[in-house]
Simulated scan of single mutants.
Amino acid sequence: TVKEGEVTEIPKGEVVIASGPLTSDALAQRLGELLGEDTALHFYDAAAPLVSAESVDMNYAWMGSRYDKGTADYVNCPMNQEEYDAFWQALTTAEEAPVHGFEDGKVFEGCMPVEVMARRGHDTLLYGPLKSRGLDDPRTGRWPYAVVQLRRDNADGTVYNLVGFQTHLRFPEQRRVFSMIPALHDAEFLRYGVMHRNTFLNSPRLLDRYYRLKKEPRISFAGQMTGVEGYVESAASGFLVGVETARRLQGKPPVDFPQETAIGALGLYVSNQSVTVFQPMNINFGIMPPLDHRVKGKRNKNAELSQRSLTIIDGLREEVLS
């Protein structure tokens, strides 16, 4: 039965809380009372601006792949040193939009606003989103001093995203500063970058590997608020919580998804008390145990790690479905 409306109290009995990183104030207050003041964290998430494809001046850009990976779907917008210096100076001094309580130290590294990154040093962007290494300009045959990449944002290829340009600058400042990129001097901004606060739990202190609240196991959490980052990861946490809750209500033990599987690795990372500085985590091979033998080539190694995981999942299939 689906009941529409705001949930402001934690229900009695077995409950899964999957209210997301934008949990309403009322429920967030109840969670704070349950978890304690120092056990809930937040970070600031940012989105990059979008421009129309037809407004990009291709006289100053070229189509290419992302560092020789995939097809030539990216628009590469080069800058020489003089252009970059002026852009960096403008970016680091541009006026930011007011964000209540914003602090640079509270920014999730994976969504770092470009102006915050730029303030770390003149060359920081040159080793990050404006890295030109490996991007040969077909007009010169050389790497430019800096390159801004635009990524297709829709199937028709009419909208492009400024890669790595998450920002919380004021809208007029975004237009002024980002239009300093030569290929974007007359860009039509379809959406400006925005910033918002996300909430997630200090899960290593609070949750076990099945996303159950240690102090009150009848309560489980699922989704991004647990500190898993990404849609698939959020769904995976909800799947594990659903399987565990159903089995518990049937008097069965939990299914043991080991660290060799993505589902298990995420749950174990999120509940790992040795993680002292906890930030949202995408699934990656780094949180899974290495192979017990050497494999040449990263692609081959990752393929074997994946096959190992799939083999384990196949062995658990009957248990999960029972």
Rank of each mutant, 00 (worst) to 15 (best):
G36F: 00
A235L: 12
L27R: 12
P98D: 03
E9P: 04
V51L: 00
S234Y: 06
Y84E: 07
M112G: 08
R142G: 01
M117S: 11
C77Y: 00
F221I: 01
W62D: 04
L31I: 03
P258V: 01
V99E: 08
N76I: 10
A53C: 05
V255C: 00
P280R: 07
Q29R: 13
Y210I: 00
L207A: 11
S306V: 12
E95W: 03
I287S: 07
A118T: 06
P204L: 14
K69I: 15
V15K: 03
S274L: 15
R176D: 08
S52L: 03
A94V: 10
F108G: 02
Q174A: 03
R120Y: 06
R175G: 01
G64N: 15
N202L: 05
S19D: 03
Q307T: 08
G128V: 04
S19E: 02
L184I: 11
D156M: 12
L22T: 15
G238P: 00
P172M: 10
I287D: 04
C77D: 03
C111T: 13
F285T: 15
V147L: 06
P138M: 08
V243T: 03
L310K: 10
G110D: 10
R139Y: 05
H168M: 04
A187N: 03
A118W: 06
S306I: 12
V75E: 00
I283M: 13
R294S: 07
K131C: 05
V114Q: 04
D25M: 11
Q259K: 14
H185M: 06
K214P: 13
M112E: 03
R119F: 09
S132L: 11
Q174S: 04
D208N: 15
D208R: 13
R294C: 09
I263W: 00
R308Y: 01
K3D: 06
I283C: 08
P289L: 10
G242Y: 06
V295Q: 08
P182E: 07
S309F: 04
V16W: 09
E4T: 14
P217A: 07
V116I: 12
N284I: 12
E109F: 13
K296Q: 13
A47D: 10
E319V: 02
V177W: 05
T124A: 09
M58I: 13
F102Y: 15
G32H: 00
R294Y: 14
V56E: 03
C77H: 05
V2K: 09
T226N: 11
Y210G: 01
S65V: 09
S19P: 01
V241D: 01
I287K: 12
G297K: 11
K252Q: 11
Q166F: 12
E173T: 12
D73K: 15
T124Y: 09
N284F: 14
M63K: 15
G238T: 01
F239C: 06
E33I: 11
P253R: 07
H185N: 13
N76K: 05
D57Y: 04
R176F: 06
V275F: 02
W143P: 02
L22D: 14
P280K: 09
S309E: 04
P280C: 05
K3A: 08
S55E: 02
P204M: 14
E14C: 02
G64I: 10
T311K: 14
E95Y: 07
V159T: 15
D57T: 05
R119C: 11
D73V: 14
E188G: 03
A46T: 02
D73G: 12
R133Y: 14
K12A: 15
Y160V: 07
K298F: 06
V163Q: 06
F221A: 04
T71I: 13
